[in-house]
Design a protein around this nucleic acid. Structure first.
Lengths: 220, 220
DNA sequence: TATCCCAAGATTGTTTCCAATTCAATGCCA
DNA sequence: TGGCATTGAATTGGAAACAATCTTGGGATA
């Protein structure tokens, strides 16, 4: 029997923001969905005040769009927006990887390889999404970058829904993804900074171009 | 006599955030300075609630650091943080420039050249900072990038104070800055995307390295 | 029938008041 | 004298009540 965790005073807004972020990333809120303050407040047994703080926080992360006197919606992206984010990722994730390659332990690199192998099995979309996210974010977890890491995570979060939508209709038939993942692990293992950067940039670029071939995913 | 602007209901938090952001960027709040909710509320003739929303917004932009039950401070950066931001800028500003070069009108390019020339005159730090900011942000103002532009502006805002501190102690004696600005204008005028990217990346890289030579600017 | 107007309902924005927490100064004790 | 618990002021966090705004539906009119 677990001891009842006493809910700390303060930071209720942060807790609500965490929950809402998780819900959005899990796909329980679709882009464009309206978010009513009172609903969220009731769900968390709180007043609307911490809810408003949570919405402001997620607005800052780009997950929620607020309009004065009108309401809050889960941010939805156009294809152009999404491509822009992928272009940013293409430029800064290789930089983040460069910070990390020298700091990753051999055990961590082994773990990356395990993740790449697990991804090849099964065809559950959610499972693949989770593994893919863990694979890439793990490769960024060794260096203590104060903001680069956060920025990249935000970009992943903002595009999460469209990655899911893409996988659901596309179900990558080709093996490029897995091939690139293994190339990446190999470059990391050799501590080859330039090659790791190149492979990762190509990986993101190819993904962006495939996404652009499916504009039907985007409503606006 | 100007008509008294009626203060619209709603979005008081946004107004306070705008004012506070301006104050921080102008240097009226130094990094590490405490921000008390009630002071801000009194200054704006509002209650503390919109102030708290404003603080959450600026936290999302990285200008303010909040600690639960404790308070808010103007975010201060370490040298490592600042270098990280400059490295990010080095990678994404050339991308943003690439979006813009084809869209800039000849008149806008003329204006850039004017700014570059004005920057060579006078030695007032604030004047130089304002012109430098306008020069670069103007070169990013033609294309309608939804997030890349915002991201870059945020990076400029976060590092604004350290740019000022650097200029105050260093007062660039060499002419590299101006030379690079004119090279940049020339590349833009020729619509040479690759060259413009190269010049801009070098410009930012050189600035970063000069900043790193003055660690005494950073307190922590 | 289409359009405009208006009013009621729903939702958000703000203020006020109170509770919880933190921090610093004070006094106590070894 | 130094360390430590305690107490109080200062400050932040949250809830409920109220005010302003927007939306939506119906109805009157051209």
């Amino acid at each position: 029997m677990t001891t009842a965790e006493p809910i700390p005073h303060g930071a209720a807004g942060v807790r609500i923001a965490d929950d809402l972020r998780t819900a959005i990333l899990a796909g329980r809120y679709a882009p464009g969905a309206r978010i009513r303050q009172e609903d969220l407040a009731d769900q968390h047994g709180a007043s609307r005040l911490p809810v408003r703080e949570a919405l402001r926080m997620l607005e800052g992360e780009g997950l929620v769009t607020l309009v004065a006197n009108t309401g809050a919606w889960v941010t939805s992206l156009s294809l152009a927006d999404c491509e822009e984010m992928y272009q940013i990722r293409e430029r800064i994730e290789p930089l983040l990887l460069r910070y990390n390659v020298p700091m990753l332990s051999d055990a961590q690199i082994d773990h990356l390889e395990q993740l790449a192998l697990q991804m090849e099995e099964g065809d559950d979309v959610e499972h693949f999404l989770a593994l893919d996210r863990e694979f890439h974010l793990s490769s960024y977890s060794a260096a203590e970058t104060s903001l680069l890491g956060d920025t990249v995570r935000q970009l992943w979060n903002r595009t999460q829904h469209y990655r899911r939508a893409f996988m659901q209709v596309f179900r990558p038939s080709d093996r490029s993804v897995h091939h690139e993942h293994h190339l990446l692990v190999a470059a990391i293992r050799r501590r080859d900074l330039d090659e790791a950067e190149r492979v990762l940039a190509s990986h993101i670029r190819r993904t962006r171009k495939e996404l652009a071939r499916h504009p039907e995913i985007f409503t606006d």
